[in-house]
């Protein structure tokens, strides 16, 4: 499926992701990493559930509010069978837990702090994701 190159929304949206990370650090002193925020919100006995649930609620509410305001949802396309989505979710869930973060926590917040662990993690997950897409699309020939 072809998607259009959208430089202006990409730069604008990226700046908002950055602004959110800076705000969460300035006000709450926390890393805006969705792996840590989601697992901290789910795990029993973990302190600081309130701010994590609030962040998640805000993140989920935003695209819905934009839909209301703009009259149309933002583009979203996923044509994979359910089993592939579930497999992907299981791999990501195990992977980010052992890896201690994902695109937001390591890729944005960690690299911004020049953390060696985050730089290594980002290089590894980007490379493996690229390799997986290459194998799926150009070796196995699944569109």
């Amino acid at each position: 499926m072809i998607t259009e190159f959208t430089p202006i929304p990409a730069i604008l949206g990226g700046a908002l992701i950055g602004a959110s990370a800076v705000a969460l650090m300035a006000f709450n002193g926390r890393i805006a990493g969705l792996t840590g925020i989601l697992s901290g919100a789910m795990l029993p006995g973990a302190g600081g559930r309130g701010w994590r649930l609030a962040f998640l609620a805000g993140a989920i509410l935003a695209p819905a509010l934009m839909w209301l305001a703009l009259g149309a949802p933002v583009p979203f396309a996923s044509d994979l069978p359910a089993w592939a989505v579930i497999l992907s979710g299981l791999l990501v869930g195990v992977g980010v837990t052992y890896g201690g973060g994902c695109t937001s926590g390591h890729g944005v917040c960690g690299i911004a702090r020049l953390s060696p662990r985050s730089i290594a993690a980002t290089v590894v997950f980007m490379a493996f994701s690229g390799a997986t897409v290459f194998v799926v699309r150009h070796v196995l020939g699944v569109a």
């Binding site: 592939a84 791999l91 990501v92 992977g95 994902c102 695109t103 997950f125 493996f128 690229g130 997986t132």
Partner: peptide
């Protein structure tokens, strides 16, 4: 862990 995450992300 990051490698597993990358594979899942790429799927």
């Amino acid at each position: 862990g990051s490698a597993l995450f990358g594979i899942g992300w790429g799927i």
